[in-house]
Amino acid sequence: MTAAELIAMAAFKSNVYSQAFPAFGVERRGAPVQAFVRFDDRKIRLRSQIYEPDYIIVQDITLLKDVNVFAGLKEGGIAVINTEKDVENAPAGVKILKINATKIALEVLGLPIENTTLMGAFAAATGEISLDALKASLNERFAGPLAEKNIRAAETAYNIVKGEM
C-alpha cells in the first residue's frame, strides 16, 4: 500500500489526478496484499476495484505460484516484477520488466523493503511519473537520511531500467 500511495502522490505532483487504495481489510506488512492506483486528467469518481490494469507491479515473485497476477492485464500492458529469474506464464502481448529490487533495497537501504526501488523502476518503465515528482513525493513522505536513501534506491532502479530501454 505504501508503494501505491507514493505512486499516487508522485502522479499528482506530475499534474494528474490520482487515487490509491488497498484491497480492503487485509493490508498488513508481510501479508500478500493488493493495492490499486488510478490516474486521470480529471477528477476520479470511479470507486470500484481495478480489474483491467494497464500496469502491474509484483513485489514478491513467490506470489506467481499461487496468484495469477497477470489477470486482466491489458494487451500492451507492462509488468514490473521484482526478480532476475525468468517469468513463466506471462501472457502474450505483455511487456515484462524484471528488476532485482530486493538487492538494490538491501544495498541502499539495508532492508528488503522494495517499495521505493520498484517505484523508480515503474517511473522509468512507464513514463507515467517523472523522476522529479517521484523525488518530491519521497521527500514529503520521509525525513532526512531516510528520504535521501529512498531517493537513491529509486534513482538506482530508474537508471537501470532507463539503461535497458
Binding site: A8, S18, Q19, F21, F24, K43
Partner: peptide, 12 residues
Amino acid sequence: LDGFIVSHTFEP
C-alpha cells in the same frame, strides 16, 4: 462516509 472505500483511499 463509506468505510474503506472513502476512509482508506488516498486522493486529492
